[in-house]
Computed example of a mutant assay.
Amino acid sequence: MIRTLNILVLSTVAMVPAFAMDAARSEAKQIIELQNGETLYVFKNGLMAKESRYGSVAHLREGEVVQTADGKSIATKGNEVALLASLLNKGHGR
């Protein structure tokens, strides 16, 4: 009984990061993988935010040119750091 309860709790805890990631992915209009392992989120208003390869929010300069995983170049627009941080942390708060 206790072992089953422990397994249930551990599997629920393992799912929390997936729900947080879903929040960011569902809010984004487009998600683009970059060459260096980072991810570019394009939101419905056209503004963008960048997630580092380690899963944290990365600063994005207006007009910065980033390279996609398939070799294309994209000039960025905006720096939605707060929005992406909020979406990535959804489900991790108190």
Rank of each mutant, 00 (worst) to 15 (best):
6 N>F: 09
23 A>W: 01
45 N>P: 01
42 V>R: 03
93 G>F: 13
72 K>C: 05
78 G>Y: 00
20 A>R: 03
88 L>A: 07
62 E>D: 10
2 I>E: 13
62 E>L: 00
83 L>V: 10
89 N>M: 13
21 M>I: 04
62 E>S: 03
60 L>I: 04
28 A>F: 05
37 G>C: 11
80 E>R: 11
66 V>Q: 08
60 L>P: 02
28 A>V: 09
30 Q>I: 06
24 A>R: 04
87 L>E: 01
12 T>L: 15
12 T>W: 06
46 G>E: 05
65 V>I: 14
24 A>W: 02
56 S>R: 11
33 E>Q: 14
94 R>P: 15
14 A>T: 01
70 D>Q: 14
28 A>E: 03
42 V>H: 00
52 S>F: 11
15 M>N: 03
52 S>G: 15
82 A>R: 12
14 A>D: 00
70 D>W: 03
94 R>N: 13
11 S>K: 09
49 A>Y: 04
49 A>E: 05
51 E>K: 14
14 A>S: 05
28 A>I: 09
51 E>S: 13
70 D>I: 09
43 F>P: 01
28 A>P: 01
24 A>Q: 06
55 G>P: 12
48 M>Q: 12
46 G>C: 01
22 D>K: 14
17 P>K: 03
22 D>F: 06
74 I>M: 05
37 G>Y: 10
47 L>V: 00
61 R>C: 04
34 L>K: 13
71 G>W: 10
44 K>V: 12
89 N>T: 09
22 D>W: 11
15 M>H: 03
52 S>E: 07
13 V>L: 14
31 I>E: 07
12 T>R: 08
83 L>T: 11
38 E>R: 15
21 M>G: 06
47 L>Y: 02
79 N>S: 14
33 E>V: 11
64 E>I: 01
11 S>L: 04
59 H>D: 15
45 N>G: 03
84 L>E: 02
9 V>G: 00
82 A>M: 09
6 N>W: 03
71 G>E: 10
